[in-house]
Design a protein around this nucleic acid. Structure first.
Length: 569
DNA sequence: CTTTACGAACTT
DNA sequence: AAGTTCGTAAAG
């Protein structure tokens, strides 16, 4: 078959003006690249023929089950065209006629995308030659980026391209083909775990090896998209992958470098090192690099055992570390100085924050005291009346929550309630409970099993989880009265709590004020703690073993090489 | 120039 | 109707 194919392929060729790709393969007795018409394929040699060139219509072909071209039948008379059982009449009549009219035999079918062909043959289309390995593949690899994009492999279906291993070697666009050797390697590594890979691995490795071979043997083919007319074998080999090429170039470089490097080393016997860089080539055994060890190294390692590796590492540290420590101690460390200053600052701020916290705790208790005292007051009826009369009854205020106009007298009460109504319908939480030691009544912290969060409103302000207590009829407002906004007069509002619009919910607001400040201080403390930790960590690591081994401080001569001093001064 | 995204033709 | 995979525009 191959020889026959090459005969055909090496024919005149190349007059394919109508083709989109100049170098597309040619077919049929006419040796043209046109594939945009009905075609039929030989079940023996796989060559394709234009229906019109050999006088076979699509309709006729539908009745044919197996078809062989003239050349194949000449060579092997046992090959017979087989028809489908039912529609036999039509074809049987027509078939002999075809043969007489054409120099090449008859056919099967195909028409660009979507033709139906016998199992062995593969459909041919603008992007499928139908002959190459990838075209013949039926399963997706489930590993490449295109497969992973597919819905059936749980992908988002954004890329919508067929499996890389199924991209035609000849006609698929270059960038859609197998991406690089990494992929194939990976596949092989995964083969133990993947349920797909068992079936395909060998194929894929073969595919890959062929790609590689094509690069080495036919470098002229590897750089242009679709080479000129070449036979099937060449066509298969012609698949080249840029990535692989680049990688190999790199690899060569590396190899050379490592050789040069190793020659420098004390290997007197001129051992040539392999590409694998594992210290062994062609079965030659290397001596373990462990101190005083004469054992051969383990495969893939420079040492005979873990122990030897560790010993060498320890020796290295003994050798290098003292010198580094000395070096480190020679010059004062600026970063260390800065760190110390920062630590001092942090400590000062921490102290201030703690003071502020105790102050706030004091105010917390003070406020509770005031509230208790306020409750002991008695209601004085007349005060409330005076207040109400003096107001202008025509004034209106719009509620900030519901935007309804309300009378100024009841505005505070209305807005407070209105706000609570809306606020209680939403949640504001985090997945962590509050863990602040020694702080009472700060966050609401009610657990919401639905969202699995803890409420992070101030407890006194959370309308979602706490309701304002019901006010008894005889309860007094009790808000401490002030002069010039801030100066307490020592007196208390003695209006009935239910009727006092001026000081509505004053306890709640005063408590919230204190609590908010407490939260701020706690945040500040937390932030300072974090800063301290970072600075300490940096200071500890600065002269740590790893840092000393990895980094080195070079003392520049301030007069000559220190650019900064030259510029600045 | 390659990669990503997507409408749409085509298949199952 | 759902899945495939093409051509192509936009983005990188």
């Amino acid at each position: 078959m191959d020889s026959e194919m090459s005969d055909l392929d090496q024919g005149p060729g190349m007059e394919n003006s109508s083709m989109e790709e100049e170098n597309a393969p040619v077919y049929c007795i006419c040796r043209k690249a046109d594939i945009n018409c009905f075609m039929i394929g030989c079940d023996n040699c796989n060559e394709w023929f234009h229906g019109h060139c050999i006088n076979v219509t699509e309709k006729m072909a539908k009745g044919i089950r197996e078809w062989y071209c003239m050349r194949c039948r000449d060579k092997n008379p046992s090959l017979e065209i087989k028809f489908r059982p039912k529609k036999s009449h039509e074809e049987r009549v027509e078939q002999p006629r075809k043969e007489k009219q054409t120099s090449l035999p008859d056919f099967k079918l195909d028409k660009r995308r979507g033709s139906r062909v016998r199992d062995i043959l593969v459909k041919r289309s603008a992007r499928m030659c139908g002959e190459c390995e990838p075209c013949k593949r039926t399963e997706d690899c489930a590993q490449c980026d295109f497969c992973k994009d597919m819905k059936k492999f749980g992908g988002p279906n954004k890329i919508r391209q067929k499996c890389r291993l199924r991209q035609c070697e000849v006609r698929a666009r270059k960038m859609l083909r197998v991406k690089d050797e990494e992929f194939l390697r990976e596949r092989r590594d995964n083969s133990m775990h993947s349920r797909y890979s068992d079936d395909f691995d060998d194929d894929e490795m073969e595919l890959y090896h062929r790609y590689k071979a094509s690069q080495k043997n036919q470098p002229w083919l590897s750089d242009d998209e679709d080479g000129p007319v070449y036979n099937q074998v060449m066509r298969k080999k012609a698949v080249k992958i840029k990535h692989i090429k680049r990688r190999e170039k790199k690899f060569d470089k590396k190899q050379k470098e490592s050789r040069r490097h190793k020659q420098k080393q004390k290997h007197k016997d001129k051992v040539r090192h392999s590409d694998r860089g594992d210290g062994r080539v062609g079965g030659e055994v290397q001596q373990c690099l462990g101190p005083n060890c004469v054992e051969p190294s383990r495969p893939g390692s420079k040492y005979c055992s873990e122990d030897c590796g560790m010993k060498l590492a320890a020796n290295r540290i003994y050798e290098i570390l003292p010198q580094r420590i000395q070096q480190w101690q020679q010059s004062p460390c600026i970063a260390e100085e800065l760190g110390k200053k920062q630590l001092e600052r942090i400590r000062r701020e921490q102290q201030q924050a703690r003071l502020r916290l105790t102050e706030m705790e004091r105010r917390f208790h003070e406020l509770e005291g005031i509230v208790v005292k306020a409750k002991q007051q008695t209601v004085q009826e007349d005060q409330e009346v005076n207040e109400g009369d003096s107001e202008d009854t025509d004034l209106q205020i719009f509620c900030v929550s519901c935007s309804h106009p309300v009378h100024p007298k009841v505005a505070l009460r209305h807005m407070e309630r209105c706000y609570a109504k809306y606020e209680s319908q939403t949640s504001f939480g985090s997945i962590f409970p509050t863990r602040i030691e020694g702080a009472t009544r700060l966050f609401c912290d009610v657990y919401n099993p639905q969202s699995k969060t803890y409420c992070k409103r101030l407890q006194v302000l959370c309308p979602e989880h706490s309701r304002d207590p019901k006010v008894a009829v005889d309860e007094v407002c009790g808000c401490p009265l002030v002069r010039n906004v801030f100066e307490p007069t020592g007196e208390y509002c003695r209006v009935s709590k239910r009727k006092c619009n001026k000081h509505y919910c004053w306890e709640k607001l005063r408590r919230a004020e204190v609590d908010l400040e407490r939260v701020r201080v706690w945040y500040k403390l937390d932030e300072l703690f974090e800063q301290e930790r970072n600075v300490r960590m940096a200071m500890t690591n600065r002269a740590g073993l790893l840092a000393l081994m990895l980094h080195q401080t070079i003392q520049h001569d301030p007069l000559t090489t220190d650019l900064r001093s030259n510029k600045d001064r």
